[in-house]
Design a protein around this nucleic acid. Sequence first.
DNA 1: GTAGCAAGCAAGTACCTACTTGCTTGCAGC
DNA 2: GCTGCAAGCAAGTAGGTACTTGCTTGCTAC
Lengths: 212, 212
Amino acid sequence: MSPEIRNRILDAAARVYAQYGFRGATTRLIAMEAGVNEVTLFRTFGSKAQLLQAMMQSQVAATAAPILSDDVGDPERELTEWCGQLLEYLRGHAHLIRKTISEAEERPDAACAACEGPNTAGASLALYVERLRDEGLADPDVDIQTAISMFISALFGDALYRDVMPNSFPQPAKSAPSKYVQTFLRAVGLRASSLPVRSRPARVAGTRRRSR
Amino acid sequence: MSPEIRNRILDAAARVYAQYGFRGATTRLIAMEAGVNEVTLFRTFGSKAQLLQAMMQSQVAATAAPILSDDVGDPERELTEWCGQLLEYLRGHAHLIRKTISEAEERPDAACAACEGPNTAGASLALYVERLRDEGLADPDVDIQTAISMFISALFGDALYRDVMPNSFPQPAKSAPSKYVQTFLRAVGLRASSLPVRSRPARVAGTRRRSR
DNA sequence: GTAGCAAGCAAGTACCTACTTGCTTGCAGC
DNA sequence: GCTGCAAGCAAGTAGGTACTTGCTTGCTAC
């Protein structure tokens, strides 16, 4: 019943699960990590499956994926900030997401829950870019859906795989958001209102370091 | 000793591992899947770990990731064909790659082996785009590294996650390669020699179906 | 002080896991 | 026909797994 112990168990379960997956997250390991007797797990959550399900819910409830504002101001600045926040969110949950998705066939509901955050983030981006195009800032002839899909995949890949295959991510993690956004805007055919996009030197990234 | 039985075991191990991961791939399951006595596994490979290591080697040796040709002809056509082949390769190994990467911390050598194919494919693309730029076909002011990184991530994401989160991949799997390549070339600032890139209708994808 | 209750502790159950051993079967080469 | 050898089969070992039970400890409320 004690909420303090309950949360300690949930946090420990999240750590152990993120490292070892469902099968590897034994009740003994979780209890040790939480500094709690193993029996307490079963008295509090009933079973290992229920415990990990509760852990999953608490994880998705704890932090929310970032949402882009409704009205478009400076696209590059707004997108870069959103992109940095989303990357931070994804990196914080990288191991958990990786494990959950790789076990999607055995536990599809858990995978569904883990994808909720990224999905809403992607939908938010789609809405924003639609506005961009409505306001004549993006090339209307361009395949925007594909650009969005590739953008989201790039953020996913960066957050989930940068540590495993660093060769594929040459730019440092800090400057990645602005570079991703610039490339994305170029692909979307941003019609610069103030600045020309295609012939701008890459120096811009440095002047906007204060986004975190 | 018999190579036929050996291969049957290796294939069965690949299937079971791709579905259940290292911990879930029990020797009993593999033996049943191979239609072989469990003892034969140990007599042939020594231990479960050695069996799965041999399976990994045989998997990476079986098929190779596609390589782009050294001289640049029609970039869009060549890249689309390469992209289709790489996607096919990745999709064929999707479950295996997903499981292996998610277990990278516990078995880093296996993850390294699984990343070998994708890494060489990425390096091949980097070389090709460098040639593109040398021949003046790509915008020299553009951040090509980032575009390549996002492109590879997009292919990875498509191959590994399309089945789990289909919302993020609106375009059908068949037409994905040409769309990815067109978006990539736009981001790289392809300077069209014969055709203008930015204002071309998407019809091109249909006329090049014979890539397989 | 005492009743209630959450948590710890020790032990046990039933099952699964990797791996071993001893023996039998069936086939190929001499 | 005999030998050698690869594979099957039955059984067992030692340890791990989820989960249960019975009892003790310690704190809180009345």
